[in-house]
Nucleic acid binder design. Sequence first.
DNA 1: CAATTTATTTTGACCAGTCAGTATAAAAGA
DNA 2: TCTTTTATACTGACTGGTCAAAATAAATTG
Lengths: 197, 197
Amino acid sequence: MAKKAEQRRKQILKAAFQAATEKGYESVTLQDIADYADVSKGVTNYYFKNKSDVFTQLFEWITTRIYEKEAASISEQETAIGKLEAYIDRVFISPEENKNFYRVYLDFLSQVKNNDSYKEINQKFYENCWSIGREIIQQGLEEEIFEVDDVEQTVISIRCMIDGSLIQWLMRDDDRLHDYYRNACYESILQILRYKK
Amino acid sequence: MAKKAEQRRKQILKAAFQAATEKGYESVTLQDIADYADVSKGVTNYYFKNKSDVFTQLFEWITTRIYEKEAASISEQETAIGKLEAYIDRVFISPEENKNFYRVYLDFLSQVKNNDSYKEINQKFYENCWSIGREIIQQGLEEEIFEVDDVEQTVISIRCMIDGSLIQWLMRDDDRLHDYYRNACYESILQILRYKK
DNA sequence: CAATTTATTTTGACCAGTCAGTATAAAAGA
DNA sequence: TCTTTTATACTGACTGGTCAAAATAAATTG
């Protein structure tokens, strides 16, 4: 029972994500979501309070999932450089996936100013991202291959570099530049970490 | 006549900007814009083809203005470090101004996927930003205080760092962190430029 | 097991409200 | 007067959310 309800919920969230990548947050209607999910309009209102509720749960879901995958990727690696490379590889996963996520994420960010729960969800996402940065830096300090003045400032800068790169890449709308931006991002982060050797 | 028309146009664009900072791109109505400009709805339709036309011209106007101010700031300086500091000071101009611009800018970015003229305007803005980066780097190379492998990649990374910093700062919604993010951004850029001494 | 009742899920028509864009009227200026 | 500019009224399209009724599944009972 609860299992089927959960399945429906996920089905609707996926439909909302797909609709948002194609039409953008604001212009997606409840009808669009229902169409993408292949259900009638009433179903969405049956499982969610309203449109904002759908997107709150969607953002929570995708930001959590992304963090979990990133965290899993770096924990498989032992060395600082291994962790950093795994992180960058996971973040720049593919043009297709990056495009889908960042399109919706940009919409989400532009809504943060109007919606406190969105702000909270994003804050939590940032904290998760920073914790990944922290793990990489600490490993690098132990190995004595990084040199940073302030760990907290550096984890923040790393996330700035990643988001800035993917947003700029997305705006240029050229899949061939994906590798170029990954590389630029990776090398800049190494500079920020004063990577030795 | 033409002068008064130009004045009205600017008045409406300013009103659209103010409306967009407060309500967000999508939810701003033509009525809102007219209200903020203290004119009737007919005026907006008289001077602009439609809502999209208003925002296209607004986007073009503000990105051009920002570039011109940034370019003016760095050209006053002779040294590479002077130019870089002037650039960062201009970019991180004040919590208030950064908030207003980046709120609207984020809305614009999230619309780029649906609107080719927005994409073009943003592309032009990026190119202007890169040209500023180029000027700073070249000065630094002449002074032999910077060391970069690839100038083009570095100007891109600098812009990633700036946008990433201001977006992350904006999302955290704490004016007291403005200085902190400016500093983090500045120091990271120095690292990326391998600043010597 | 089968019939019947109850609970859950789904449907789509509907409503009240909003908006962009248009048409028209009024005013101002040349 | 005639053209330009501004104000107001209107229209048609669309939206989020409601709701009563239908369909389906689960539980109960004889």
